[in-house]
Design a binder for these strands. Sequence first.
DNA 1: TTATCATATAACTATATGGTTATGCAAAAG
DNA 2: CTTTTGCATAACCATATAGTTATATGATAA
Lengths: 109, 109
Amino acid sequence: MDIEKLADMLKALADPTRLKMVAMLHHRDCCVCEFVPVFKISQPAVSKHLSRLKTAGFVKESRKGQWVFYSLRRETLEQVGLGLMQLPDMSEELNKLEQQGLLVNVCCE
Amino acid sequence: MDIEKLADMLKALADPTRLKMVAMLHHRDCCVCEFVPVFKISQPAVSKHLSRLKTAGFVKESRKGQWVFYSLRRETLEQVGLGLMQLPDMSEELNKLEQQGLLVNVCCE
DNA sequence: TTATCATATAACTATATGGTTATGCAAAAG
DNA sequence: CTTTTGCATAACCATATAGTTATATGATAA
């Protein structure tokens, strides 16, 4: 995965409120008005957090009558886990450093 | 793992520069002055990123003469991966909602 | 000792982030 | 049709974040 994309997905998760939202959605789909009393923040704040999670691909929404329910896209969470285990190869950057003589060589280590 | 702690660790990773630093350290220990030409940011900026990674437990430092080399703490990365797979149980929060009659029940779904 | 190099920290700045209130719209209820 | 409920968006504000330059410190070189 592109490292900029991975960083953006991590940023979407890197907030206690959004992490707890994901944990709740692990149990059960939830609608916006159910999150409000749990986190004790305003409804627009909840909507913005869910929008952030949606943009990053962690949740999808579906309207049920007057409610909008959010559900977890578990495969996206797995992608992030995999992405962390398989970080992109940076050896080219290190090779460039070596060609420019910018690698530090410590004697007697 | 505590969800606040996990969020904080994710925040430390959720930056393209720091993610690339971790990827580089996956190959080889690096000192501060090696990162500077790779990321084209100032030396203090590099130091601050490394300090953030260190506080979160992702790297450790060791002085080698005049240089300070940073190395990866791979077990911390694994902890984060595990933490994402085993998010804390939020069923208690859902039970509270149910007791308060705040769970939405959609008919005919 | 003095000068230089590598690094860390302090002070500052611009932008990102997470919250708020106000408001508009869609769906359900009266 | 009118009112109410649930949600999203806009505008705004305070704090966090990521960069900068200036400077202090520790280790090496002269």
